[in-house]
């Protein structure tokens, strides 16, 4: 088991290198720092000096991969590749194109992100499992059939609609909670209720339908028939046998996103004015702040790989067949 985990951790290295190469190619090779400078300073009426200045201020004036002017190791370290890409491995994100410390911003902003994403995630799973169990209990009846149709309808509605309609109804028409904004501490709750609610409702359609298929798949297995042959009640069969087995794919499927919860949700945070990493990313995209986008790509990849490793651990904890291999 430990050996396996070590293997997975080692495997993360080539993947992160790959991610880094992709971003490096996209941001520095396909578009040169000159292009970026032009974009920020405008294509016309820009002096070469302004461009050189812009690049120097942000450290983009070095050669890409090899600094012939450097001495010794500096031939490799005084390059964009080293300072802008490889440094990410040490979680040194550097400064944004507007001059702010990205690392500091990330540390500040990940908690509001988590404050929305985590409750949405937990409540969402609970609600979806409950609804899916209900549909599975009433399988092949009209409740099940129409439940599934309702799920499909809910899946077909755009996230944006849920948000706009929710803000309009609950925030604007009924004045139950503020439409957007954020506060620290306990006061944050009144700002979190609406985004969490909308996030959960939005996920019900696809989540319930997916879990229902998992439950039905389990219900048709031989061991369920054995349980019935023992004389157990349908509820006990569902809760003790089916749920316990179905939770393995459900939980392990869910675990992969847990680390990524720190990244927050782009549109939720933008709509509700939450100062989290999601809105941070959106702002960076809108302001074309490549340094921040680069940092977020790398951070996202790290968290995803962490999620994969946690999935493996979750599997071994949840499934005795894997645990005792």
């Amino acid at each position: 088991m430990t050996a396996y985990l070590v293997r997975r951790l080692l495997y993360a290295i080539p993947i992160l290198i790959g991610v880094n190469l992709i971003t490096f190619t996209l941001f520095f090779v396909v578009n040169t720092p000159d292009d970026m400078a032009h974009l920020h300073l405008g294509v016309k009426h820009v002096t070469p000096e302004a461009i050189v200045n812009w690049k120097r201020e942000r450290g983009y004036d070095q050669p890409l991969v090899y600094n012939a002017g450097g001495e010794g190791i500096a031939k490799l370290t005084e390059t964009i590749l080293f300072n802008k890409s490889i440094s990410l491995f040490a979680f040194r994100f550097g400064a944004s194109d507007t001059g702010r410390d990205i690392g500091y911003d990330i540390r500040q902003r990940m908690w509001p992100s988590l404050a929305i994403a985590l409750p949405t995630f937990l409540v969402g799973i609970l609600v979806n499992i409950t609804f899916a169990m209900l549909l599975a209990f009433f399988r092949a009846t009209y409740i099940d059939v129409w439940g599934v149709v309702l799920c499909v309808i809910m899946m077909s509605i755009s996230t944006l609609f849920y948000i706009i309609a929710g803000q309009y109804l609950i925030g604007k028409l009924w004045h139950l909670v503020p439409i957007s904004g954020y506060d620290t501490g306990v006061d944050a709750i009144k700002f979190l209720v609406l985004p969490v609610l909308i996030g959960v409702v939005h996920g019900i359609g696809s989540g319930t339908r997916w879990y229902r298929t998992i439950f039905l798949e389990e219900i048709n297995k031989d061991y369920v028939r054995t349980a019935r042959a023992k004389g157990l009640s349908e509820l006990r069969v569902l809760f003790r046998h089916v749920l316990q087995n179905a939770l393995i794919p459900i939980l392990t499927g869910a675990v992969v996103v847990i680390p990524s919860l720190f990244m927050g949700s782009l549109i939720m945070e933008a709509f509700f004015g939450i100062p989290g990493l999601g809105s941070y990313t959106i702002n960076a995209i809108n302001q074309q702040d490549f340094a921040v986008v680069r940092a977020m790509v790398f951070l996202g990849a790290v968290l995803y790989i962490l999620g994969l490793i946690m999935t493996d651990i979750a599997y071994t904890l949840a499934d005795p067949r894997v645990r005792f291999e």
Binding site: L26, V30, N31, V43, T281, Q288, V293, V297, G300, Y304
Partner: peptide, 26 residues
């Protein structure tokens, strides 16, 4: 595919589209 998958989709799209924008602008 693990590498591509590990980049958050929205960010990869953002990176791609931003690069294209720069390219088109220039």
């Amino acid at each position: 595919y693990t590498t591509l998958n590990s980049i958050p989709g929205v960010l990869l799209i953002a990176a791609g589209i931003l690069s294209l924008q720069v390219y088109m602008a220039n």
